[in-house]
Write a protein that binds this DNA or RNA. Structure first.
Lengths: 147, 147
DNA sequence: CGTGAAACTGATGCAGC
DNA sequence: GCTGCATCAGTTTCACG
């Protein structure tokens, strides 16, 4: 993990479809050198995949919110399966603290949101917050473009 | 947005580096047809970019947590700039409710976490939860592979 | 790690349906 | 709007220094 690896990660985080040739130009290395480094980053698990970023808003799901779900422990694993089966849920983290689950939801309307919350209330207490904005978009930890 | 567009989105969400030729094979269309559809999805904003998925754990930041920060309104915009300057913060959402900010942090150690929390406490009350697991990994809203 | 050449693959435009 | 083909550019991947 030197300066070149960091540059590669930053570049691929910003545009995951860069070719090795193009990547090589941006980080000032040769294409084979870059290909070699990327392969190592992939095999070591630092890069775990590549993904198209999809905008739920443009897909017809303009409302996003975060729901903290306080589950009763016994039902825990069953709940997770139910959550996986709900297409409105676009992410879910298991966390410490009373809540237990931090769920992210994207819906088309408030009435759908109401239905989702009603279903989640079967499994425990919910605390819902609407997502207004993303002041810090997803980024790489401790890697700024300072070279 | 028909069945083919959905297949394309699912495929590119799973592997953002697929070539048009390879994508065409997977969705049973010709390469030019796929290229055309992808370009439209990009221009309409449904696909807003491509990104390498980077594993903070393998980068030396094995600890992740979510911090709800209840800020005093007056300081709000100043706070966001401070957050952007903190490399340990890998994402941040502005949300409704008392908290106001939902911050995601990746750190190398508990002592670093302690420092981060200490800094955030300058701006308001904090509620920290450790992220244990990701039962539902990030996915596309309402698009299941049902074709 | 860089260079240069060779081979390949994918992208693109057009005719035709 | 899609297909199939042909062409062309670009990238990947060697071997070698």
């Amino acid at each position: 993990m030197d300066k070149f690896d960091r540059k590669i990660l930053v570049a691929l985080h910003e545009n995951g479809r860069l070719s090795f040739a193009e990547l090589a130009r941006r980080v000032n290395l040769s294409a084979p050198a870059v290909a070699d480094r990327v392969e190592k980053l992939e095999r070591s698990g630092v890069i775990s995949g590549y993904r198209a970023i999809i905008n739920p808003e443009k897909l017809g799901y303009p409302i996003q919110c975060v729901i903290e779900l306080t589950v009763k422990n016994l039902e825990y694993y069953g709940v997770v399966d139910k959550l996986k089966a709900m297409p409105e849920i676009i992410a879910c983290d298991s966390i410490t603290g009373s809540s237990g689950l931090m769920i992210r939801v994207a819906v088309d309307s408030m009435s759908t949101l109401q239905e989702v919350i009603a279903r989640l209330m079967q499994y425990g207490d919910t605390k819902t917050s609407m997502v207004i904005d993303q002041p810090v978009p997803p980024r790489i930890p401790a890697l700024r473009e300072d070279d």
